[in-house]
Design a protein around this nucleic acid. Structure first.
Lengths: 217, 217
DNA sequence: ATCTACCGACCGAGCACTCGGTCGGTCGCA
DNA sequence: TGCGACCGACCGAGTGCTCGGTCGGTAGAT
């Protein structure tokens, strides 16, 4: 994994460069959709190429291997999500982190492909040898440490009960997030990720919140 | 899917029959382990055959196709779990259902293969054409209706707050179950399914329990 | 002249599954 | 007791197909 990003520094873009970049991003979109539906192993380079409108070799001209293609797709997704969570440069803390998460859920509920990509990959990549294994681990580590920080800070600021079992709450919250996505994909319509996740957050607040944040806002 | 069970009516079992049954169940165990680690698509018939100690054709003599093999594995798993949950013939209701679920979690935490099989398959089989798709749907429907019944009954008996948002709580609980399994597989040791799930149940009880069941036991 | 985008032909490996057959045991019948 | 019909378990060798990836080349813009 972790292929260096292709250099895109060129200040001058010829017509050919533009066409190349267009093909590249079209391929990324195609790959994302196919990986989301059929997983990484279940998708062939030929399928991505066909959906992109390139030949198989043409696609491999932009991405040296299938794993590199996956890596590029994940990088893009990461960049986008990162920008969404901390659009002002700082990740929110305290209960505000859970609100930010809730709005991320709301956004995801309009993007089933992204959700599907994530659910499929994080199951497929449990296997240590999988090309996305490290990415999934990093992803979980990231959320876990963010939420842990958020709760600890909340305790320090008196908006979260100091007795709250931080680690447990973090794991539960991540679990709810993932589990709801899974159910939502399987039974679209039956499950509302947004309201069910909101119910979870409300539950947490009602048990471990001090009520001080309600006054503060 | 849903292949008829092979006839095993024969009252007399020859040595050959016994050998056949042994091979069959050995193959089922091998298939379970491989499917758990690498998923259905990621596992080849040849791998299962090798692990069983049969040739590829020998394995296909017992199971007419790869899908039939998967189907047999799932049937066996279902039968076992069903026996565990309702060993007295009746599924528990009220908060007792959540306790039963907690003890299922405890049992699962000693059987990583089963957990892995379930997590991998339920992600892989989101795809409607997947051979396990219907199985996964049925599985979720089963838990959902059981837990819904359990909470409704609990409300009728006064042990669950009548204001409790039943559907939300059911979805949340299933989500926690699945999400914890996922995290546990990815970071064994970091996450304790048992205590984190217990924390979830405690949270539910503290918010939506009437306290009446505590006196009753 | 050189560079990028792109393609067609090709390769070796792996896939699920088929076919034709061997072997050993069981059964009905003389 | 012995014999031929039959059956289930199992195997080796192949079937056609798909896979990810390589290689040598062409067209066109700079």
């Amino acid at each position: 994994m972790s292929f260096p990003p292709r250099y895109r520094t060129a200040p001058v873009k010829s017509r050919g460069d533009l066409a190349g970049e267009a093909s590249r991003s079209k391929a990324l979109r195609a790959a994302l959709e196919l990986f989301a539906v059929s997983g990484f192993k279940g998708t062939s380079i030929a399928q991505v190429a066909a959906k992109t409108g390139l030949s198989q070799s043409g696609l491999l001209h932009h991405f040296p291997s299938k794993a590199a293609l996956l890596s590029a797709v994940l990088e893009e997704r990461d960049a986008e999500d990162g920008r969404f969570i901390s659009n002002d440069g700082e990740a929110p803390l305290g209960w505000a982190a859970f609100d930010a998460l809730a709005s991320l859920v709301a956004r995801n509920s309009t993007r089933p492909q992204l959700v599907s990509l994530f659910v499929r990959l994080s199951a497929e990549a449990i296997e240590p040898g999988h090309p996305a294994h490290q990415w999934v681990r990093d992803h979980y580590d990231g959320i876990e440490s963010w939420l842990t920080d958020a709760l600890r800070t909340g305790q320090a600021q008196g908006e979260v009960d100091p007795e709250a079992p931080v680690a447990s709450l973090v794991h539960m919250t991540i679990a709810v997030l993932d589990g709801l996505q899974q159910q939502w994909l399987l039974q679209p319509g039956r499950v509302s990720m947004v309201s069910d996740f909101a119910a979870h957050v409300a539950l947490l607040r009602s048990r471990w919140g001090t009520g001080r944040d309600a006054e503060l806002r």
